[in-house]
Design a protein around this nucleic acid. Sequence first.
DNA 1: GTACAACTTCAAGTCAACTTTAAGTCAAGG
DNA 2: CCTTGACTTAAAGTTGACTTGAAGTTGTAC
Lengths: 141, 141
Amino acid sequence: MDIGEVAKRSGVPASTLRFYEEKGLIRSVGRQGLRRVFGGDILERLALIALGRVAGFSLDEIAHMLGSDGKPNIDRALLEKKADELDKTIQTLMAMREGLRHAAVCSAPNHMECPTFRRLLGLAAAGAIKGEGSGKRPRRR
Amino acid sequence: MDIGEVAKRSGVPASTLRFYEEKGLIRSVGRQGLRRVFGGDILERLALIALGRVAGFSLDEIAHMLGSDGKPNIDRALLEKKADELDKTIQTLMAMREGLRHAAVCSAPNHMECPTFRRLLGLAAAGAIKGEGSGKRPRRR
DNA sequence: GTACAACTTCAAGTCAACTTTAAGTCAAGG
DNA sequence: CCTTGACTTAAAGTTGACTTGAAGTTGTAC
């Protein structure tokens, strides 16, 4: 497979594939002339990378977990730590979602006078100040 | 209150407060000499801003919602849209969390051979390809 | 009255994860 | 033979949300 084929099949742009290679996240099996040739397992590896990204790992963390060579070298303790972080994020987001839903229908003349909203505000403020552990990365396109 | 006081009470660095002022997110009530003086309501406003950030709004969106003047001018439809987005994010994150938990305890010799893990992988890949709507911003310190 | 910490402005720097651009290489089709 | 389009590299640009640095001013404690 050449890079265009991988891009088409995986949905990951060629520029990103080159970038990932440069970062050591993926490797081509060789070249035909100048052109990279990828093996079929690249798609699985890209899926793994996508998984890591969604779970909130940085590319560097993912590179470390996947190792430069073959099979995933995953630290189970780290996985559980991330799962816990994810869980906390989920709790916060659920509170936020309820808060937004409430704010959208709340009849108080001004949100500031609504106790539900004020509780939410406190939560957000607390989260903003001490909330160091979340670490979700954006996916902008 | 001077800027240092606000920083101490809110946990928001002075540099960020100046930046927020420049962006139109907050305003000082005046100056003493060169120094900004803030009213007590600044803390509430900062909490609102924190709330918006956690909920996934950009600073520009927040500036728009809060209006340049006083009371929040919140678009209810937009709130519900964000709540829905948040809900989708939560669903994905919950799946991820389960996947991570599973991966951490899975006994398959290699994650690739575990059907649970493979299902998760598919989910991540699908999310990475079509997943455009999440939009969580990072909070790095 | 002077030292100094805390403020001020403005410009530039940082970070992650890419994307874009410029300039070039190359196999295949007409 | 020559054009075309997909590839190549290296370097620079983008975005959002800040932070940092340099150079200057000021309120307060001694």
